[in-house]
Design a protein around this nucleic acid. Structure first.
Length: 852
RNA sequence: GCCCGCGUGGUGAAAUGGUAGACACAGGGGACUUAAACUCCCCAGGCCGCAAGGCCGUGCCGGUUCAAAUCCGGCCGCGGGCACCA
């Protein structure tokens, strides 16, 4: 065997795998299938360590399952629509399509040398007309099935660029390019009616046993099921045709402490007031400032304007409450009007203190006075509190019980209606952008909104567009936009909005089962391959992508594109931690932030500079992101040490669910280790066939233990522990003095155990040591159970919980006998110093604790 | 602001109620070498001690338990998500 040279062996084995078609997914009804999928990448043009970690994890699972006899589907594609392509076109010229396909070619060229066991014959990009045409067919079917609707929605409007902005393009309430103050504007948009599935998506979470608990919890909170009551507050004098304000509240137990009302600036009453009163109009205008994100609204300063109107308290008619307009009340949620209990809600209290509104308690902590100062009294709902003069007569109660009693009482009095509500809103899919899947409908003056005929799909994006002006180029492309109505043939206009890119990623997993099908899916293929047995991706997708995919699978089932068994498309989910890195920032002449790639920054003990000496601000590690440019290029590691080193290293140190801070150190050490394995293989290969050693039994046991540990660790997604076990086994093997046959068997086992992580070197060892066929197709080793049990066990002895001694006893020794030996131990006697033993606890096989 | 996580040596971590620090990285010492690199061997949580050994120690404070890194309550710090980044 020559020296270890990955640049020679890695391409050789990759070619061998390709020629043998090892990774082509085969629809084989005789074998169990296993579908492993990693979240497909956005084609930024460069792979980074996060990709290497993500795809190596999936590859370990895919190779492991293949070795265990499964027919494995392990595909790869590109989440290729989205804003960066348009931004690139605006900043550097060129066309989003050319930029995207160029990036895909570049990234694929960087991924191939990793030696991933991917079936590349199934590759597609979401911007392929073949893919998005089928997505348009799905849209048309979903429209017909009543799963899609149109309604008004609020967007970020840049009044200078006259364009809609994404939330990330709104920085401190200003447009990222124009710097203009952003306004909230209403626009008619397309929506998927995901809220029809709120209860279904919530209750089905219980069945997702192999999803992380935290993801299910996050989704449950996002869906936000609440039980509350809808109450009318009568206006003391009717206004604008309204006689009452209708509010929804989840805390009717605090209704007595309501001291004022707040309505949204878009509320009909606020609009009517604004028409008559320029001061109200000015306030409503002001309240529309800022971005649409919940974060922006929740953290913005709460502003209010007193309308002068009052309402009567529905339960205590003597009380009247002032009606305010508040910039924090949203017309989209609930009824656009809320009643405020500053005593028991911090936001309401802050508002009340600011505008000198009254504050009262609905309850106190038992035995306390609880005068409200600057902090609202907000105990957990399961804490018993003392209600004051509560309308139901409740005195001591938890909030849980008081809420139920209040709802029952108010329903009985005809004052309100108990209701279940969900926080989950419909999914707005319209985007006023070019680089996305066109929404396949036509607007006709006589027929209204008409879906495109399926035989005309795909509705393809025109290539001849320019990005020199802000806004959507499809809007100013007459020959694409102006088409005859599919129904009546009269001149009509295409929808120029394109789809949210979350739509693209909500069904790609199904498409991989039959990527060239002339319909969105192929019944026989989805039936064999679905569901995804193991889905792997970043925790940042815990809510939106995964929830949308769960909805889409249901919608695809309803429209006949997926079988019922696939409505939960991902049987098991693993959320890997992120690869993080420091961020490097300078500012431009206008004071705006400019970010720099790590390779453009020179780091020293004193700080960081650019190559021209400009000082760079170093921001602590955060998720690697394109916009922050804190991404690391793994290609230099592959060039220097080979793919096996990169793969082993990203799997070795941190547990896969935890974030890992990228550092260059350690890759070198991995490479040295692989060299040691190579040399060990060489040495064993040259042992005389008749060599006899003393250590055959010990090595056989160590081999069995390694099989057991590596197998269990991979099954439990503890790849770092699998690698620790492989280090241990390699060290044992290197020191072993065993017979040639046992040594050879051990290193062939080592090759198979390493192969999911380091498939190329494993293949070389396998063939050199006389393994049959390709290691990639070899069966996974099985441990002999008889070799896994030890006859004796070491038991630590604690005295009052502190470890003081240890004894070695037979594995199956009876407890009384262990007690006797422990109490006779001389270290134990020394520590006891004659004190009487109060209790002795023996946990067989684990520990002994003597209590004095 | 709201929801969800995470916090253990100089570093990545292991131990998920039962011997805290496995396995590695960086570091120190030694062997080999004219020398260096490579390779191999040894040491290594902190404090006290010549040693034997002892005390302390898993972000901080408190609790449950024979026993807590692990379970519970409260704080602090860091990260993810917040519906148009993907």
């Amino acid at each position: 065997m020559s020296r270890y040279d990955p640049s020679v062996i890695e391409p050789r084995w990759q070619t061998a795998w390709d020629e043998a078609g090892v990774f082509a997914a085969r629809h084989d009804p005789a074998r169990p299938k296993y579908y492993v999928l990693e979240m497909f990448p956005y084609p930024s043009g460069r792979i980074h360590m996060g990709h290497v970690r993500n795809y190596t994890m999936g590859d370990v699972v895919a190779r492991f399952k293949a070795a265990q006899g499964f027919s494995v589907l392990h595909p790869m594609g590109w989440d290729a629509f989205g804003m960066p392509a348009e931004n690139a076109a605006m900043e550097r010229g060129g066309h989003p399509k050319d930029w995207t396909y160029g990036n895909i070619a570049d990234m694929k060229a960087q991924m191939r040398p990793l030696g991933l066991s991917i079936d590349w014959s199934r590759e597609f990009a979401t911007c392929d007309p073949e893919y998005y045409g089928q997505q348009q067919a799905l849209f048309i079917d979903m429209l017909a099935a009543g799963l899609i609707t149109r309604k008004a929605a609020v967007v970020n409007w840049d009044p200078v660029d006259m364009t809609v902005l994404a939330n990330e393009q709104v920085i401190d309430g200003k447009g990222w390019r124009s710097g203009a103050a952003v306004e909230r504007r209403e626009l008619v948009q397309w929506f998927f009616k995901i809220s029809d599935y709120s209860e279904e998506l919530l209750s089905a979470l219980d069945g997702l046993k192999d999803w992380p608990e935290k993801v299910r919890l996050m989704q449950a909170n996002w869906i936000g099921k609440s039980r509350g009551i809808e109450v009318d507050f009568p206006l003391t004098s009717p206004f604008a045709g309204q006689t009452a304000l209708t509010c929804y509240s989840t805390r009717p137990d605090t209704l007595r402490a309501a001291t004022f009302m707040a309505i949204a600036p878009e509320h009909p009453i606020a609009r009517a007031l604004a028409e008559a009163d320029p001061k109200v109009a000015a306030f409503c205008e002001e309240a529309r400032r800022g971005g649409t994100s919940e974060e922006a609204i929740e953290t913005a300063e709460k502003l209010g304007h007193d309308t002068g109107l009052t309402v009567r308290h529905p339960v205590y008619p003597d009380k009247t409450l002032a009606v305010w307009i508040g910039n924090f009340v949203l017309m989209e949620y609930g009824t656009g009007a809320i009643y405020c209990c500053p005593g028991h809600d911090q936001r309401d209290l802050d508002f009340a203190r600011k505008y000198r509104l009254p504050v009262v308690n609905a309850f106190h902590m038992p035995g306390e006075t609880n005068v409200i100062g600057t902090e609202a009294l907000v105990p957990a709902k399961d804490v018993t509190v003392a209600y004051d003069q509560h309308f139901t007569g409740i005195t001591l109660s938890t909030a849980y019980d008081a809420i139920e009693r209040s709802i029952d009482w108010m329903e009985a009095q005809g004052l309100g209606k108990g209701q279940v509500k969900y926080r989950l809103r419909d999914w707005g899919l319209s985007r006023q952008r070019y680089w996305g899947c066109p929404i396949p409908v036509v607007h006709c003056a006589t027929c209204g909104v008409v879906p495109e005929k399926k035989e005309n799909l795909p509705v393809e994006l025109p290539y001849d567009v320019s990005f020199d002006k802000p806004g959507n180029p499809l809007d100013r492309h007459p020959t694409w936009r102006d088409v005859p109505c599919p129904t009546c043939g009269a001149p009509a206009k295409r929808e120029t909005d394109t789809m949210d890119t979350f739509v693209d990623s909500s069904w790609y997993y199904a498409r991989f089962t039959a990527p060239r099908s002339k319909t969105p899916t192929d019944a026989a293929e989805v039936d064999y391959w679905m569901n995804v047995d193991q889905y792997i991706g970043g925790i940042e997708h815990a809510i939106l992508h995964l929830l949308y995919s769960r909805f889409f699978a249901r919608a695809m089932h309803k429209t006949g594109h997926l079988p019922a068994k696939a409505i939960e498309p991902f049987s098991a989910l693993f959320t890997q931690g992120m690869v993080t890195h420091e961020i490097y920032r300078t500012t431009d002449a206008q004071g705006r932030p400019v970010f720099h790639l790590p390779e453009d920054v020179i780091r020293s003990e004193a700080g960081a500079t650019l190559k021209d000496g400009t000082a760079v601000e170093v921001i602590p590690s955060a998720k690697m992101s394109k916009s922050k440019k804190n991404v690391v290029d793994p290609m230099n590691i592959i060039a220097a040490y080979g793919a096996d080193t990169a793969r082993w290293f990203v799997m070795s140190d941190s547990p896969p669910e935890r974030d890992v801070e990228w550092t260059a150190s350690g890759a070198e050490a991995t490479f040295k280790h692989l060299n040691r394995v190579w040399a060990l293989c060489d040495r064993i290969g040259q042992m005389p066939a008749d060599h006899r050693g003393e250590g055959d039994d010990d090595l056989a046991r160590a081999t069995a233990r390694a099989i057991d540990e590596v197998t269990r660790s991979i099954e439990g997604f503890a790849f770092n522990k699998a690698i620790a076990a492989l280090y241990g086994f390699t060290n044992t093997l290197a020191k072993a003095n065993a017979s040639t046959a046992v040594m050879k068997e051990a290193i062939r086992t080592l090759a198979r155990l390493m192969s999911p992580m380091t498939p190329h070197i494993a293949e070389s060892i396998w063939s050199y040591q006389g393994g049959d066929g390709l290691c990639a197709q070899a069966e996974w080793p099985k441990a002999d159970p008889a070799l896994l049990v030890d006859d004796t066990v070491t038991l630590p002895i604690q005295i009052n919980g502190k470890r003081r001694a240890e004894i070695s006893v037979a594995k199956d020794m009876a407890v009384p006998e262990i007690e006797k030996i422990a109490l006779a131990n001389e270290d134990v006697l020394r520590f006891l110093a004659g004190q009487p033993v109060r209790k002795i606890i023996v946990v067989p096989g684990r520990i002994i604790n003597v209590v004095v």
